[in-house]
Amino acid sequence: MSISSPVAFTNNPDELFVKKHVKYIQSLDTRKDEFEYWLTEHLRLNGVYWGLTALHLLNDPTALPRDETINFVKSCQHPSGGFGAHPDHDAHLLYTLSAIQILAMVDALDAVDTAATVTYVAGLQKPSGVFAGDEWGEEDTRFVYTGLQTLKILDRLDAVDVEKAVGFVLACQNYDGGFGVVPGAESHSGQIFTCLGVLSLTNSLDRLSTASRDQLAGWLAQRQLPNGGLNGRPEKLEDVCYSWWVLSSLAMLGKLHWIDQNKLVGWILSCQDEVRGGFADRKGNAVDVFHTVFALCGLSLVGWGGLKEVDPVYCMPVETTKRLFGSK
């Protein structure tokens, strides 16, 4: 990643530059900077999902053209039912979830062959309950989450062994209360989000004892550093994307108030570029769409005025998840 012009980090940590952020995301569609993060093809479908989610939260859901978006998603579907990051790419669970989320947000799930998608996802579950990301075979808790969320949106959780998937996730809990990618792997906020997401969307959060949930929420709250930012693991640097992984996890546990929200908001806002729009991972670095959407999601979770509410389990607007699943 490179930056062509210097980033103008805000000196107004009380203001969210909504219009600038909308413009920034729209510009990604037309800018042909080959180093730009979301334009790299191996992430393209994710990039569209990140941008679209951000626009929904910013109250400007039609800022990306709907028909083109749907056509692009359609062009990424394989005969197998899964989706690749880009029309010429192999199918992978990460992009399959993004595709289904995009279609869910623009209310166009009938534009693709979802029955084939269900078959594709179900085929990636392994006997241990875990999911592989693709036929190449990487297996970890991220893919359990992406697989199950895809099926949940399509109302086809019955197509896989949910109990085994939940069992695999529970086996990934560590002595400090957190979760890692596979059993025994170090606790990491990103993996905690995916594991709590699995437990939430399968209504299994009560499989963790109250004491264990409290311990986990305490560990998550410890991710806040004196400057207000959040890190992903002990002794690591703070990063805007953890405003999502940590906060959504705390939200699922009902403990958002265990961190200092004012300090966090000030810190997130200090990472925006007030001239070009967009957020960086931390002040001083280049902005990208990934950190932009997760900054906005974090602000939304702590109730920043003017932003649409985000659903901590699905990382989509609550408006969308209500339409899909009814009111919670």
């Binding site: 086996a171 209360g177 004892s209 109250t210 004491a211 264990s212």
Partner: peptide
């Protein structure tokens, strides 16, 4: 009530 503490369960290493 239990003070927040680790899960009783120890992760099983597959």
């Amino acid at each position: 009530e239990n003070v927040p503490t680790a899960s009783e369960k120890t992760p099983i290493v597959h």
